[in-house]
Each structure stands twice: as structure tokens, then as C-alpha cells.
Design a protein around this nucleic acid. Structure first.
Lengths: 235, 235, 235, 235
DNA sequence: TATGAATGAGGGTTCATTCAT
DNA sequence: TATGAATGAACCCTCATTCAT
């Protein structure tokens, strides 16, 4: 990407549009042309979300100042309010984008893996790896969104359900494949999510955090045993 | 307790003094006598904490107004500030009291139970029961304390560690008794706490919550299997 | 100046810009054009300082309410806080502006006068005249700044030193010119400043004040004799 | 004095009563008797004023907390309010006592001195000495009372007038004795008081104060010359 | 008389949001 | 679209004063 001021958790490109797409825009404008208005708007949008991630993750929802997000996004308060109707909407939009990106990445890591156990393995390692390398994302999703106030509970529930359901789907697949006995996948998905959540949260709050990914073996064993994966498959 | 305006999570009696002690006070004052100054102070203290629990749990730390806590405690803002030096201290004191009471109750339910597996059983059922019947307590400890701001992270870590350590101790006992194979009790304690936490949190946030204690069997199986309890002991 | 709502101790023009400059702005905008943003900001800044002078002088630092200063400046509390970070800063800024203006005016009255005795004469008459016609300024500098609290002592000392040094410089010049015998100009400057200060203060506090400038002859004689000016030069 | 908790700017004895007087009380009670109620009251009164002097002088009128004065006086807020109807009255009473004591001491130093010039000399040295050794007294009278608010202006004027009149009386005496030419004693008294005041104030505010009494020679010369004392009498 | 818990008005400050330019 | 000055409601906290005990 060559667009100035545009870096962050995703690359600021309109959803579904790659750099190449932009290069090859059929608009007749050269590659040196100014971006279209829609693109400018999109880039600014993303830049604000990037800034919001940093500030919300660092200060929490309430302590985060709209002004600081704006200035970090190299715009003004008025500019921010042009793109988002308010602080609350900004936070919700950020949660949406972050959740989407996280799930997308996890799924990318599971792509091409067929065996349910191996898929779970990949997901677990993936989550730990992503959070370990993206603390702001972890803080936002696991720490600051809770307690941001009753206004965000619906969204919080939605996010949690999405992650839990994601796990549950894979557990159901394993059960259907006869690898594990039938189970209450809903509850177990929730429990696994919570367990993972807690391990990451504790690591986040540790003033001298060790290696998050070191928790992987213990969690793996605990999880797989917990749902009745035969001991020999756990290794 | 017959003292007016005094209801709440504990019964407002000065630490180390039972109702009986008060009845039998050797002061010569009848049981109908006015309470002593020290008792009044303590009652007011507790009443403020009770009110704080309700308001913090309902609105979250930031949205909670000191004035509302005061009026719910049937005192004034100034009165509250006589007992606590500030909103933050009040919140911390509330967290301390709540954690202490929760652990105390769980331990009470485990008293007299020797078998490690049965102890874990009792603790799990106890936690679910207490949270199911004390939503504000659950909201406070599991939801609102997170994201209350960096000022409370140290306390949050402390509380989490206490619960996780509580679980870990029992797991270590089970391992020492040869009931389960050796394990990373630290991490597993954390994971269990998180799993439980998540189940309760989801229930808390559910607009139409079912019966929290219904999650018990699935969690029990998951937990016990996860640490390698022989299938016949799980039943 | 024709700008509405802009009156006060100075005329609200951006530093280094005269009324003529504004009239002749090369922007092509007519003299009836709206002021630029920077000018508006500066005007509001000055208007707040003007209001602050009135309120601080009338009520004293502690009793002065930020809200009243804001409303007198025809803005809101938030507006005031946009221009000054706090009450204390506002007060300090006001002290700086007031001291600067006072010294500037006195110097203006001494400009072109060469004889040290005549210069002292001009300064003395000038101070009495300025304070006589600007009671709020006098109250602020001589009365309310003292006892405004230890936070302002450094500034108070600075102001006093500036005035005393101003006098001392002229005394040294007189001594260098051989008009008066050598003297401890530092202490005498301080003493003169205090004497003047006291006369003005007493006049300020008098419920039925007479003519402040009537004190001039007695002070003149006292001061000049005190430093050994020959009787014939005193008249 | 043997009465506990009683030390301070005066010795806590009812005005005009010496220790000996107390010893020889004609009440028939032995010297070991408990003090009478009136005496207890008086001692408490004085102890509160002593504490008030310290706190007001250190923190200024507004920042001074009634509670701290009470605790420094080893009583309670309620106790203090029994002796004084409010903070304002306490401050006024303190100003009265302090002014009285200061004048009394100065007069003691002038007792037996007849020559007007020598009397002035004694007074000047006395004031410098007393303030140099009693900073709280100086802070109270010269610094904190100003700017304590319009409520205290009448008292402030009264105090200043008392000191100025004190000086004026001696100047008039000198003029009547033909030592100095006739003068506006009122204004000169004010000016001298202000000059002295300023020197002391500057010393008070100096973070590294030198010897206050070192200012004596310069002030003496300035003052005496200023009113026309013949050079040979100044020495 | 003394205590100290309680009151409550008042104040400084913050900050999401608006809107004229 | 962008800017940033302005708004104003809300909040935490202080502290002189009162009064039941």
C-alpha cells in the first residue's frame, strides 16, 4: 500500500479489494492518480479505526478521549464525527472489525485442515499466536469491552457467542465423526472460550508477562481430554 | 439482625461479633437499647457497601454515581465520603469484601468434605449456586471490574489469582492423592476459573436467562475429564 | 476597536498588531469583514482575562467562581477551559498581563524624560494615577494576589521584585549621576514599593475613599528626602 | 506554666493575670487544686487560638481546615465550635489577639525611652526582631489576612490604621518637639508601615531568607532622612 | 461540654457532541 | 469535508457547620 498514513490491523483497502485491484482500476486514471473520493473516505475510516484500537485498548472505553483518537488518526474531532456518529458507534464498529478480522485469521489457519482434532489444534495455536502478537486486539476484545457499560452488552454477547459457536461447530463435527462422544457443544464451546480468554487475560495483566504460547500444551491436553478425545490421539 | 436499614450481603455485625454476642452484651443495656456508636458506624459502613454493590453492578464503575450510592444507602454524599476516602477506595473495599465473602461461602460448602473430587464438586456447585442467587455479586466480580480502568488491574489480577489458586490447591491435592495424573495446576486452575467465569457471564448477559445451575453436569464432566479423573469416578 | 464585546485593559488586538494593521489587512476583505479565526480566538482570550480581572478583584481568588468569569466573558465554563487549562493558570496569566501592562504604562509616562528625579516623579504620579483610575487592577495586584495561597507565592515574589527592581534601577541611575549619595537601592526600592502599595491599599479598602492622587506631595517629599535628594531639588 | 497542652504565642494565662497571681489565688484552693472552670475554658480558648495561628499562617485562611486546627488544639470540631461560633470569628479573634500582642511587645520595648527619634528606633528594631523570630505571626498579619476575602477588609483596615497611627503619634511628637519639620503624619505613618511590611513580606516569601534584621540600617536611614531628621542625628 | 458522624451546597474540571466558518 | 472553538450537563470531591448522643 502506498497510501500515506495508512497502516493498521488491516491494510485499509476496501473490503474485497486488493492492492492489485486498485492498481488495475479500470477508471483510466493512471496509477499516480489521486485516489477516488470513496477510497479516501474508506482510508480515513480505517485510519480512525486503527487509532481507536490503540486508544481504547490502552485506556479503556471510558478513559479514551475522542480527541486523542482523532489526533492519532491525523484528523480532527469534527472529522471523526463525520465518519462516525459518536464514540459509541465508533467502538461498536471497531468491535465488529476486530472480531471479523480475528475470526478470519483463525479460519485462514484452519483452511485445508480436515481432521477435527487437528482443526481445533490449529485454532487454539492460532488464537494464542494472534493475541500474543497483537496485544491491543486482545485487550480490546477480552478486557475493555466488558465493563464498558450496559450499552455494549448486546454486542459483547454477540461476540462471545460467535467465538463459542465457532468452537461448538468444530466439536459437533468431531462428535459426528465419532472421534469424541456426544456432548453439550454449546456449553463446552463457551467453557473453552472462557478458559482461553482467562489465560490470555491473565497474561495481558501480568506486569512481566512470559510467553503466552507456552500455555498451549497444558490447554491442549485439558481441552482434548475434557471432551473425551482418546488418550492416544492426544499423544 | 433487627437493626433497621441493614440488609445485604453480610449482616452488618462488627467483625468477630455474632448476633448472640450482641444479644448478650454485658453492658446492661437491654436488647432494645440503641446500638453503640461503633456499631452504628459499622452498620453505615456496610450499608454503603451494600448500596455500592447494587449500583456498581447495575451501572458499571464509571457510570455509577457516588450520589446514587449514597442515597441508596440512605446517607448523603458527604456521609459516604466520611466512611470512604473516594469512589475508587469504595470500589476496592467492595471488591475485597465481595471476594472474601464468596470464598468464605464456598469454603463453608466444602467444609467436612475430604475427598478431593467431592470437594471440587462442592465448590463448582457452590459457585454456580451463589452466583445464580446473587447476580449483583457476579456482575461485580466477573464483569464490571474488568475494564473499570488500569487503576484496578492490580486488584483484578489479585482476585483472579486467588480464585485460580483456590482451584489449583484442590487439584494438587487430587494429584497428590493419586486420583489424577500430575498436571500444570496453575494453568488448569486459571482455565477452569475462566470457563466457569464465562458460563456465568454469558448467563448474566442473557436477556432471558435460563437456570445457571443447569450447566453443572456439562461443566463437571468437562472439568473432571480434562484433568484425567477416571471415567468411573465421573459416573 | 469596533469588535463587539471587546473592551478591557488592553484592546484585544493580537500581539504586535495595531488597529491600523487590521484596517489595512491585505486580505482583500473589507473593514466590515468578519474577523479571522485567530483574531476571534485572541479576542475571546482577552475577554476572558478582562472578566477574570473584574471577578478576581471583586471576590478574591478563592471566592471567585469560574462560572461567573465565564458568563461575564459571555462564554461558557467549557469555553473558558478551552482557553485556559484551569483556574490557577487563568489567574497566573492575568497576573502576567496585568503586571506587563502596568509597567508598560508607567514606562510610557517616563519616556522622553531624562532627569532621574523627574523620572521618579513621573513614575510615582503615573502609578497613583493608574491605580486611581483602575481599581480592579490595583485590587488584583496589591491585595488579592497575597493570600491567594502558597501556589502563587513564587509569582508574587516575581512581581514584587519586578516593581522593586524597576525603582532600584532609577535610584542607581540617580546615584550614578551624583544626584543622591550611594545607597542600598535594592532595599530602598522594596521600601518605596511597599510604601506606595500601602497607601494605595488603604485607599482601596476605604469605604469612602478620597482622592488617591492627593497623597502624591507627601509621598514625593518623603521619598526624595529619604534618599538624600538635596532640599532645593525637592522644592 | 504547668497547665498541660498550653504553649503558644502567649502563655495561656488570662489577660492581666500572671503565674504568681494564679499561685496566690484567694480562692482558698491549694496550688494543687484543679483549675476552675473559667480557667479551663480560657486555656482551651487560647490553645485553639495558638493552633489557629499555626494553621492559618501556614495554609492561608481558605486552605486552613477547621478540623486541623481542632486536632492541633487537641480538641474536636465540635469542641472548637463551642468556643468560637465559626471559622470567621476564630480568624477575627486571632487577628485581634495577634495585633494586641504585637503592639504590646513593641510598646514594651519603647517603655522608658523618651527621645522621639530613639523611640522610633526602638520600634523599628522591635518590629524587625519580633517578626524575624515569629514567622507565623508575620505571615498571618502581613500576608494571609490580605486576600482572605472582603469579609475581613474592615478588620484589615483597622489593623493597618492601628499600626500607622502608632507611628504617626511618634512622628507628631517629634514634630511637636521641633526635631523634624511638620508633616502629613497620617500618610507618612502609612508609608513607613507599608515599607516595613514589604521588607518583611519579601523576607517571608524568600525561599532562602537571610537575616531580616540586616535591613535595619538602610530602613533607619531612609525613614529618618525621609521625615527630615537632621543628618547629624542619623549619624 | 465534648465528640464525630452527617449534611449539602458549592466548586473545579472533563468531555462527548455540535456547528459556524 | 474539515476544523476547532464552544457548549453544558454531569461528576467527584471538599469542608464549614450542625446535632444526636
Amino acid at each position: 500500500m502506498t497510501f500515506p498514513g495508512c497502516q493498521g490491523v488491516n491494510d485499509g483497502v476496501p473490503e474485497g479489494m486488493t492492492d492489485l485491484d486498485i492498481m488495475n482500476r479500470p477508471t483510466g486514471r493512471s496509477v499516480f492518480a489521486m485516489p477516488t473520493n470513496a477510497e479516501r473516505k474508506h482510508f480515513r475510516h480505517q485510519r480512525i479505526l486503527d487509532a481507536a484500537l490503540d486508544v481504547f485498548a490502552r485506556d479503556g472505553y471510558h478513559a479514551a478521549a475522542v480527541e486523542e483518537i482523532a489526533s492519532l488518526a491525523e484528523t480532527s474531532k469534527g472529522g471523526l464525527y463525520f465518519h462516525f456518529p459518536g464514540k459509541q458507534s465508533l467502538f461498536l464498529a471497531l468491535l465488529d472489525r476486530s472480531t471479523f478480522l480475528l475470526l478470519e485469521r483463525i479460519e485462514a489457519r484452519m483452511a485445508g485442515v480436515d481432521d477435527p482434532i487437528a482443526r481445533v489444534d490449529a485454532a487454539l495455536r492460532g488464537v494464542l499466536h494472534i493475541f500474543a502478537t497483537q496485544r491491543p486486539l486482545a485487550r480490546l476484545l477480552l478486557l475493555e469491552t466488558m465493563g464498558a457499560g450496559p450499552e455494549f452488552q448486546a454486542k459483547l454477547v454477540e461476540i462471545h457467542r460467535r467465538f463459542a459457536a465457532f468452537i461448538a461447530r468444530n466439536l459437533d463435527a468431531a462428535a459426528a465423526a465419532g472421534i469424541i462422544p456426544p456432548l453439550d457443544a454449546q456449553t463446552v464451546g463457551l467453557a473453552w472460550f472462557g478458559a482461553l480468554n482467562q489465560v490470555v487475560t491473565t497474561w495481558l495483566l501480568d506486569p512481566n508477562p512470559g510467553d503466552l504460547e507456552a500455555a498451549y500444551p497444558a490447554l491442549r491436553t485439558l481441552f482434548l481430554r475434557g471432551v473425551g478425545v482418546p488418550e492416544e490421539r492426544i499423544r
